[in-house]
């Protein structure tokens, strides 16, 4: 399986002396360039972390990089005042939105993917092409109609409304990814179970679902990150008491300069869990990416 941690094949083969010298030098230049690139990619996030750990006065007086000369400046004041201001409720809203939206997508998409992969029915290919077509539909298309619909059913502003929206728009990708995995499951496993007279539900729950763990992990982490990091859907459908972190922080953007002491720790808190998940499950993350880079 291709993961980030897969060791690269070395580049052996006999080369001329000149070629080897060139490789050495070239290698050195490559090292330098890539170190610079890596620094370039790390510094912005590092800046956010450091700014979040400095007091407002210090941030106004000097650049965050001066912290490394005076580490005594580190303070958790911003974080404690952020939590005191009620930020933790938006953290829980994010959890309450993300977890159900992820679990529901996995369950519903797995069922549909099972049907697409292993049950024959008329028009199956055509219906699946519709699912593929829906992969790229922008969420913007549904904002106005669904807002109307939610207003009609009285769930506008609720967490349930946000969750359902995420589930629906997560489905095409989820079905696509799982279906492609399911068709790879050896047919004889299913045939054997069917011979034994197992019900379709049982086969789904006891044969296919357990085998599909890697694909479900990929899908799960993708859906989780997608919902956790969403701003637009929350902006439209979540009212203030149900708003996730992204919306809560967005409302502070207008006075960016004076609100840095809220925005920096808030943004950092919001990215901690995705980062932990990312480092913990990067293998599945990459797999999911490779499986469905079409969204």
């Amino acid at each position: 399986m291709t993961t980030l941690t897969e060791p690269r094949a070395a580049q052996p083969v006999e080369r001329g002396l000149l070629g080897r010298v060139a490789d050495r030098l070239g290698g050195g230049a490559v090292q330098v360039v890539l170190v610079l690139v890596a620094v370039f990619w790390l510094v912005p996030t590092l800046g956010l972390l450091v700014v979040s750990l400095r007091g407002e006065a210090q941030n106004n007086a000097s650049g965050w990089w001066t912290l490394f000369t005076k580490p005594a400046e580190i303070t958790f004041q911003n974080y404690s005042s952020l939590l005191a201001a009620g930020f933790s409720s938006s953290f829980w809203n994010t959890v309450l939105i993300t977890v159900p939206a992820t679990v529901l997508v996995i369950g519903i998409a797995a069922m549909a993917a099972y049907a697409f992969a292993w049950i024959e029915f008329p028009g199956r290919d055509a219906v699946f092409l519709v699912v593929i077509a829906l992969l790229v539909v922008p969420v913007q298309i549904a904002l106005i109609p669904i807002a109307k619909l939610y207003g009609f059913f009285g769930i506008f502003g609720s967490i349930a409304g946000v969750v359902l929206f995420h589930v629906a728009f997560g489905l095409p990708f989820a079905i696509f990814l799982l279906r492609n995995f399911f068709v790879g499951i050896p047919r004889e496993l299913l045939e054997a179970a069917r011979m034994d007279g197992a019900q379709e539900w049982r086969i789904f729950a006891t044969v296919v679902f357990p085998l599909a763990k890697p694909a479900i992990a990929s899908l799960g982490i993708f859906q989780f990150l997608w919902v956790w990091n969403d701003l637009l859907v929350a902006l439209v459908f979540a009212d203030t008491e149900n708003q996730p972190m992204t919306k809560a922080l967005q409302s502070q953007m207008r006075q960016f300069g004076t609100n840095v002491d809220i925005l920096a720790p808030g943004a950092f808190l919001s990215l901690i869990i995705p980062l932990v998940l990312f480092f913990g499950f990067q293998r599945y993350f990459v797999q999911g990416l490779l499986a469905g880079s079409v969204k």
């Binding site: 912005p44 990091n229 953007m253």
Partner: peptide, 10 residues
């Protein structure tokens, strides 16, 4: 893995 909002703040 980072939200675009956080990337924006960054």
């Amino acid at each position: 893995a980072v939200s675009l909002l956080a990337a924006g703040v960054i």
